[in-house]
Amino acid sequence: MDAVLARMRTLERRLPAHDGVAVFNRVYLTVTEALHHGFGAGEFPEPRRAEALTVRFAERYLAAVDAAAEGRRTPACWRPLFQNRRHPGVRPLQYALAGINAHIGHDLALAVVATCRAQDCPPRALEGDFDRVGDTLVALEERIREDLMPGPDLLEVADPVTHLLGSWSLQRARDGAWAAARLLWTLRRTPELAAEFAQSLDASVGLVGRCLLTPLAVPAPRPRAVTAAPVPWR
């Protein structure tokens, strides 16, 4: 867990503040620090197992960061964020929720299955830990929206932001991740079907991410200088 936190803090120092990945990283670092505190405070009945799930979960995000930095292809769920991380028409709140969508909608399900394999237990044994991790995320979502929602000086985009992001729910994404994890666990003895489902999940979550990153306010181009034609004397 300490190594995961150290990586996120390093990214926070190195990435430009307005970079879309930096926006998500700040949010995720806050979540991970809250979970780390919860492990030490006795908020989880099986803290080692919950920490194992949290670490495997975080490592999928960090692997996507490494892939992008090295010019390798990132998972489809992360591709919209990395491709649009400096778009002038995308707001910080969109970056944060696009990252959460990728991480919850795709990575969480795979992290549950990987943890179950390592711990030699079915998903139901992790359900309590899964719920507590999800509760931490949901509790922070409202604060994230309040902190990153455009202020009064950006009222012209407030309505589009509200409309676009109101169609996405962390709770629904969490429920979908749990259903996907259970299905992947059921398919573990048919690797081809499991891989096909995981690929489809990756693509569908990536499509949602592209919608969340729809540009809402692109600066108008500067008008080109126009030279008036001379008026002929009559």
Rank of each mutant, 00 (worst) to 15 (best):
V4I: 07
V4C: 03
L5D: 02
A6N: 01
A6K: 01
A6F: 06
R9H: 13
T10R: 05
L11T: 07
P16D: 11
H18A: 09
H18Q: 12
D19T: 11
D19K: 14
A22Q: 10
A22R: 15
V23T: 10
V23H: 03
V27M: 02
L29Y: 05
T30L: 12
T30F: 10
T32V: 06
E33T: 12
E33P: 12
E33C: 15
A34Q: 04
L35M: 07
L35I: 06
H36R: 14
G38Q: 15
A41G: 10
P47E: 12
E51K: 14
A52H: 11
L53G: 03
V55Y: 07
R60L: 07
L62G: 05
A63W: 03
A63M: 02
A64P: 00
A68H: 02
E70M: 00
G71C: 02
R73V: 04
T74F: 01
T74N: 03
C77W: 00
C77M: 04
W78M: 03
L81Q: 04
L81V: 07
Q83W: 04
R85D: 07
R85T: 04
R85W: 06
R86S: 02
R86N: 08
H87S: 09
P88A: 09
A98R: 01
A98D: 04
G99D: 01
G105A: 07
H106W: 11
L108A: 06
A111R: 07
V112E: 03
A114I: 08
T115L: 04
C116W: 07
A118R: 11
D120S: 05
R124Q: 12
L126H: 01
E127A: 09
G128A: 15
D129Y: 08
R132S: 10
V133I: 11
G134C: 10
D135Q: 14
D135I: 01
T136Q: 04
E141S: 02
E141Y: 00
R143H: 11
I144A: 01
I144G: 06
R145T: 05
E146F: 12
M149A: 09
M149E: 10
P150A: 08
P152C: 10
E156H: 12
A158M: 07
A158T: 09
L164F: 06
G166K: 08
S167K: 05
S169H: 09
R182I: 13
L183I: 11
W185L: 09
T186C: 12
L187W: 12
L187C: 15
R188I: 06
E192I: 14
E192F: 02
L193T: 14
A195T: 15
S200I: 15
S200E: 15
D202F: 15
V205D: 10
R210H: 00
R210P: 03
V218S: 00
P219G: 01
P221Q: 00
R222S: 04
R222T: 03
T227I: 11
T227A: 08
A228D: 06
A228I: 03
A229K: 02
P230W: 06
P232K: 07
